[in-house]
Design a protein around this nucleic acid. Structure first.
Lengths: 199, 199, 199, 199
DNA sequence: CCATAACCGAGACGGTACGTCGCGTCTTGAT
DNA sequence: ATCAAGACGCGACGTACCGTCTCGGTTATGG
């Protein structure tokens, strides 16, 4: 006995958010602006998403920017691949302009925090974990603290992307990977280079 | 040949900002609220600081949260000291609530970006650089990319402080330092432990 | 399909305007002051009235100061009654302080001008016209230019009320009425034409 | 030992006021605008004139709009001449836009009120009084209340100029003069008294 | 098969905070 | 020594946007 929700509005709103974030940035992204661009109204949006933060987060999730599946058979190359995807993804305004703004609001809303991590961090984390597990099975790396390791890899990329205090050029993924892997390898410094059998 | 600016207002405003950031957070920090708390008016504030961001940044600079001078004679211990200070500082709402919000606005204002780095990042960076230079003079570490190294140290702390995806406990500074130093040491794994002569 | 306007706000605002005009005068009547006194906000007021002028005008209309209905059966007495009401009305700050201020702004807004005349002048004019028409039917007065006559009656009252260059005592209505109705010449109607010797 | 006041500033300011009043009207006439146009500063103006009102009044006085000296040897013609000058003067924005605004502020400043009357009203009044005195000496008019008479003449012009509720065409001066000088009754002077049947 | 009741869309509301303009004052440097 | 000048502290302005509430229109079901 109830009317069904019009899914075209969902799509139009998310598309409008993606466009507007790129055009005007996050801080100038207003609910009214989104509604106007999407050809609908504020309450229609508000019924679907609890707040501007949730809305933007949903739009991000809809894009899946910067997550890759990769399996080179070599830990070093896998990690470089993941980090490079992260580096490129963070260059997209849709991530780099939105993430800090969301971060600022996470403290006020634990549920938002959870969703944020689930959408923004978990997919990237999981992709890396898979590569690490495979490397462990291959014996490339010793027993290790995965959470710490993931942060050692990803943090420098994220840090530079957010603070922009130094270049984040195309070789940065390689530099970080090498520096970290030497420390966590099995003592053989070659660990930090490609370990694939020649051929 | 003009009237002099009343410095009591400067102080009252900065103090009001510090208080209010801790009380209500950054997003609920309004110019009107600051003016009211400081016992002055919006235009008086606006004449001194170009935007809310500049104002908040100035209040942060006024506090110098989380910068330490340390010289233990051992690179490992120095770095742990710096990172621990960073970790503790980032736990202060005055940093953790403000930094992401500022980050979000840096893209729109290059001058703000510069000031932000000068106030938030440079002092911490410089303190670490001093420790690294001393270690190089002592021969503890080989030739290295200082900027990369600094990011390897600091990024994990900042990353966890901002994303809160994992614990940032009191032993994290030690964990990060050890992991990174093994990789950049001179091959002697002892590098990552205290190198001070016994005594 | 929209929300309904809260009429209590309309009433509270108009009442606040009436009070404040009497307390502080027109030039010190601010939108913020009105909003505060009425217990509402500026935008709520602005949605209802286009400008401070329209607002004040509405408050005046709400009071209907100085309009009387009178039918004595005698033109002279009717006019004296109307003019006395006008005289007394103009003594009320609600009129005497507001009218000149509004007059000053009429030039910038034709619509306001129209409303002003409709509210301030038409009711008084109409009341007088009724009396004049009755007198014409009774044969008391000859064919005449009603608009001119109304101005001859009312203008002196208004003029003295606004300029305050001379007393506007309780006998002024009588004086003006008599002077206009019988003329001030010596009885020789030629007085009003050129009296210069021909040549 | 004292510097002399620069009279060029006086002149430049008054000229700027005259221009600006005609260009933007009274309500948009700001001290800052005047200072800018005159090439000087606000305090320099403020030292010379107590308020915006006094300044504008001085600019009006400087122009002597609408005062004429006339002596035709005939009261009717003299009055028409004076009223026509008043009519034309009131059409000048320098008078019609300024006078109501000044009127609105007279209540708050008795001294301003005095100056206003001295500058705006007295010269016109005096010119008329001279004509009336001459007419009395010629025996054209009987003993009369000069103040009342002056108001009967001038008020309709001023009234229409301010309220703009009716035309103020080139024949209005003549109409008013004739009506006041001969009256509007049917010639039976009883018209101006109560005509009700006794009882 | 149609009536009905729920729920959606839309629009305007009351209100907070914004950024700006102009005021009147103070204080300083030049004449 | 005095005045022109510039910047100050401040009140009020008009506006953008927020989050909410109320309303017609549509739709799927129960009688």
């Amino acid at each position: 006995m109830a009317r069904r929700r019009d899914e075209r509005i969902d799509r139009a709103v998310l598309a409008a958010v993606s466009e507007l974030v790129r055009e005007v940035g996050y801080s100038a992204l207003t609910m009214e602006g989104v509604a106007a661009r999407a050809g609908t109204t504020k309450p229609a949006i508000r019924r679907r998403w609890k707040s501007r933060q949730h809305l933007v987060l949903a739009a991000m999730a809809h894009e899946r920017v910067g997550v890759v599946e990769i399996d080179t058979g070599c830990l070093h190359c896998d990690i470089v691949g993941h980090l490079e995807a992260l580096r490129v993804g963070m260059a997209d305004p849709a991530l780099s302009r939105v993430i800090p703004a969301l971060l600022a609001d996470l403290a006020n809303d634990p549920q938002l925090h959870e969703e944020f991590l689930a959408i923004v961090w978990e997919p990237r984390r999981n992709a890396c974990v898979v590569s690490l597990r495979r490397a462990q099975e291959r014996g490339e790396v010793k027993q290790l603290d995965i959470d710490l390791l993931l942060d050692l890899f990803a943090a420098p990329i994220v840090f530079r992307a957010l603070f922009r205090h130094a270049d984040l050029g195309p070789d940065f993924a390689e530099l970080v990977t090498r520096a970290v892997l030497i420390g966590v390898g099995d003592g053989d410094t070659r660990t930090s280079y490609c370990t694939r059998p020649a051929g």
